[in-house]
Computed example of a mutant assay.
Amino acid sequence: MLDLFLPESMSVAVLVVLLAISFAASFITVAFGIGGGSILLTAFATLLPPLVLIPVHGIVQIGSNAGRFALMIRHVHWPAIGAFTLGSILGAGAGGALVVNLNPAWVQIGIGGFIIYSVLSKPPAFLRDWGGLTGAISSFLTMFFGATGLFVASFTKSLKLERRAHVATHATLMTVQHGLKTIAFGLLGFPFGPWIPFIAAMIIAGLLGTLLGRLVLTRITDQRFRRALDAILLLLSVRLIWAGAQSLAG
């Protein structure tokens, strides 16, 4: 039966591994606020062809984040959404239109360093006050780099929301961003069709992880949530910097 969800050249074993990772990634994102998108992107980078990596990751993330949004819609901090969306439209459009080759290593190092700075010190004022700029920068970068959820999480964290509002608002922002990215790749001619069954299976697995993660989220305090969020942000940022440095070193 799993054969129905297999893209060309993918084995059943690889599909099962990726479904398990999708479940775990969504669980981690809901329970602790961040991390799932980067984990999933790392798995995709290891197991999927490079040319499909960012487009397929983006549309899977639409499903995962839209599921979180639907389950937690009453906790969304709506004032943060409008300006971020307008900025994201500009950023995704610029990223799709410009024929550039950003070195992913420098992007990784830059984002990692910025997030560490934001966690260990007071977040820059623009993260709180200029949601449009955050949306534009992150949406531009996501066209080339894929996982900018850490960057967007710094913006969400700067709003100082309670844990449920943080998760719901971040899910809404990422749904917008990945949605615009997917539209841009579609306009650029990426063939999503053969990957639709696989994407659907990944989204379903992610939804199950979301449901379990929400149970954990309701049982922890805001203080513990923020500590876990900061710890995960720091660990993932160090990993980004390390991966970028390794790439530069060859």
Rank of each mutant, 00 (worst) to 15 (best):
A13S: 13
T218Q: 15
V30G: 10
F192M: 11
L234P: 09
I196W: 08
A43Y: 08
R219D: 10
S138F: 03
K160N: 15
S11F: 13
Y117N: 06
G58F: 02
F192K: 02
I196M: 13
A66K: 03
A201V: 06
L217Y: 04
I203A: 14
R224M: 10
T169A: 05
I115C: 12
A83H: 13
I81P: 11
D129S: 12
I137Q: 02
I116L: 15
V238W: 11
P124E: 02
W195T: 11
S237V: 05
P55C: 05
V167G: 07
P104F: 06
A25Q: 02
I89V: 15
P79T: 01
R163K: 15
P50T: 14
T182R: 05
G33L: 11
A25V: 00
P104K: 08
L71I: 08
E8F: 09
N103E: 10
G179S: 15
S158E: 09
L53Q: 02
G67W: 06
L19H: 05
W78M: 09
S247G: 09
G131P: 09
D230R: 03
A205K: 02
T42E: 02
V152Q: 00
P55L: 04
T85V: 06
T134I: 10
V60T: 11
R219T: 13
G93F: 11
P50S: 13
F145L: 14
H170G: 15
A245Y: 10
L236W: 04
V60N: 08
A147K: 06
V167Q: 04
A205R: 05
T182S: 15
T218L: 13
S247A: 15
A201I: 07
T169Q: 05
Q246E: 12
L53V: 10
A31H: 10
G36H: 03
G63P: 12
F225S: 09
W106A: 00
G35R: 01
R214I: 14
A245P: 06
G244N: 09
V216D: 07
A45G: 15
P191V: 13
V56A: 04
M72N: 15
L127W: 01
A43C: 10
Q223Y: 12
L86I: 14
L161P: 11
A245T: 14
A201E: 09
N65H: 02
G250I: 12
P50N: 04
S237K: 03
I89W: 00
M1E: 13
G131E: 01
G250R: 11
V216E: 05
G110V: 01
G93P: 00
G244H: 06
